[in-house]
């Protein structure tokens, strides 16, 4: 699914903030990405969802070497990845429904299917009455749920989430994790970056632990 070999990453001409990362996330994995603030969790996720190129090393995603994949083919790979951002990153000029529907619309799905699917997902996350609300009119928790709905609507092969439960109450957090587990059972690989050690322990504790940009531990995975 994902294979990193001696990967390093830097922003611009700055110092390397990720160094010598080598690991493999197998298909169907349910992993956590842990580490202190500034350890490089979000940057590692950026490499995984192809928002940033590595400064060195090899990244293989869905069997494709990213370095040699033509740029025009990267959007096709990105459509197989769902991302939940810590800061939601919703598009403020679009309603909740339009935000959720956007991945399907970009993928060229039929309008009726897109509308129905987006509406169902929003109702599932408890935002049925808010489909026509714009993100600035929603609370942090509501925006988080819209972001989650947007990430999963395309039924991605790989779901990456950065502190997905951080803005949710306990009940909604449990529902979200239940959704992730169900998606995982259906074959979606999940990688969740979190500070929440309790969450990690409750769900098997497999994954990566970063310390200052380096891989300190691989719990239950393939090195």
């Amino acid at each position: 699914m994902i294979r990193f070999e001696n990967v390093g990453m830097r922003y611009g001409t700055g110092p390397e903030i990720l160094r010598d990362l080598t690991f493999t996330v197998e298909p169907g994995a349910f992993w956590f990405l842990t580490g202190a603030s500034g350890a490089g969790k979000s940057s590692l996720l950026r490499l995984m969802y192809l928002a940033h190129a590595p400064s060195r090393g090899l990244i293989n995603l869905f069997g494709r070497d990213i370095a040699t994949t033509p740029r025009a083919e990267l959007p096709g790979l990105r459509r197989q990845i769902g991302v939940v951002f810590q800061d939601f990153r919703l598009i403020p000029s679009l309603t909740a429904l339009q935000n959720v529907a956007l991945p399907l619309r970009i993928a060229g799905k039929a309008e009726a299917e897109t509308r129905q699917h987006a509406g169902e997902l929003l109702r599932w996350v408890g935002l049925g009455p808010f489909v026509d609300h714009f993100p600035p009119a929603l609370s942090g928790g509501q925006q988080q749920r819209v972001a989650i709905a947007r990430a999963v609507i395309g039924q991605p092969r790989l779901l990456l989430a950065d502190e997905p439960t951080g803005n949710l109450d306990e009940e909604m957090g449990n529902r979200l994790m239940h959704l992730f587990l169900e998606m995982n059972k259906l074959g979606t690989s999940i990688v969740i970056a979190t500070h929440n050690e309790g969450l990690v322990r409750r769900h098997g504790g497999r994954g990566l632990h970063l310390v200052e940009g380096e891989l300190a531990e691989i719990r239950g995975g393939t090195p």
Partner: peptide, 16 residues
Amino acid sequence: RDVIEILHIIGAQDGY
């Protein structure tokens, strides 16, 4: 800039 990055991440082609 943020919107463009989001569109990229969710798989939009440059043309879109």
